[in-house]
C-alpha cells in the first residue's frame, strides 16, 4: 500500500514487475537503472543464484522529485519468476501499488505467460487485491527474437490470452535493447500515482 506522509509531504509507491521466469523482468530493471543511475543516489539491489536467476527480488528505489508539492518516491521490484519461488513472489507483492506484467513473446512461452498471470491473480487474491482494480501495465517483451528467426506470438494473441477482459495499457518491448522499456515504466508509475491520488481524495 502506498505510503503517504502528509506532514513531510512524501508519497511512496511500490511497483512490482511480475511475469514468467526468464521473461526479462530483471533486464527491464537493469535497463531502467542504466538510464537513470546518474540521476539517483541509490543503487539497484539484486540477489541472484549462481545461474544468474533472481533468487529473492531486485529492488530499485528512486526519488522522482516533487509533484504538487509532494516528494514522490518510487520503489521498483521484480519477483523471481520460477514456479518454485511462489512464497517469495507472494511476499514481494505485499503492499504493491502497481504492476508491470512482463510477458515473454516467444511462441513456446505462451503457456508460461498464462500460468504466471493466473499465479499473479491468486497471489493478489491472498491480499484481497483485485486484478481489475490494481494499476496494471502489460509488456510483451522479447520482440527482438523475431530478428533472430525465433517465432514470436503476435500481439493479438498475447492480448487475447492476458488482456482480453482487463484492457490494461500494453507495450511491445525488448528489454535487452531497451526498446519501450521506459514508456512501460512511465505508464506504470503514472497510473499508479493517479490511483494513489484518487485514494487520497
Amino acid at each position: 500500500m502506498s505510503f503517504i506522509n502528509t506532514k513531510t509531504k512524501e508519497v511512496q509507491v511500490k511497483v512490482v514487475f511480475v511475469g514468467p521466469g526468464r521473461g526479462g523482468k530483471t533486464t527491464n530493471l537493469e535497463y531502467i537503472f542504466s538510464r537513470i543511475r546518474h540521476r539517483i543516489q541509490s543503487d539497484m539491489v539484486s540477489i541472484k543464484t549462481q545461474g544468474d536467476r533472481t533468487l529473492f527480488f531486485d529492488f530499485l528505489p528512486f526519488e522522482l522529485g516533487a509533484i504538487k508539492g509532494y516528494q514522490v518516491k518510487t520503489q521498483l521490484y521484480t519477483v523471481p519468476g520460477q514456479v518454485k519461488y511462489n512464497a517469495t513472489r507472494k511476499l514481494v507483492l505485499k503492499g504493491v501499488d502497481g504492476i508491470v506484467f512482463v510477458a515473454d513473446s516467444a511462441v513456446d512461452r505462451r503457456e508460461n505467460n498464462i500460468r504466471s498471470f493466473e499465479n499473479l491473480r491468486e497471489n493478489l487474491g491472498f491480499y484481497d487485491i483485485d486484478l481489475t482494480t490494481i494499476p496494471l501495465v502489460f509488456q510483451y517483451n522479447k520482440r527482438d527474437l523475431a530478428t533472430q528467426g525465433i517465432p514470436i506470438l503476435d500481439v493479438n494473441t498475447l492480448e487475447s490470452d492476458l488482456n482480453a477482459q482487463l484492457k490494461a495499457p500494453s507495450f511491445t518491448a525488448s528489454a535487452l535493447t531497451g526498446d519501450n522499456v521506459i514508456p512501460t515504466v512511465k505508464k506504470a508509475i503514472a497510473i499508479t500515482m493517479v490511483a494513489t491520488r484518487d485514494k487520497l481524495l
Binding site: I67, K68, I189, A190
Partner: peptide
C-alpha cells in the same frame, strides 16, 4: 492538473 504535472515530471526524469 495533477496528471499533467505527473506526466511532465516523468518526461523530465526519464
Amino acid at each position: 492538473t495533477f496528471a499533467f504535472d505527473l506526466e511532465n515530471r516523468l518526461d523530465d526524469f526519464f
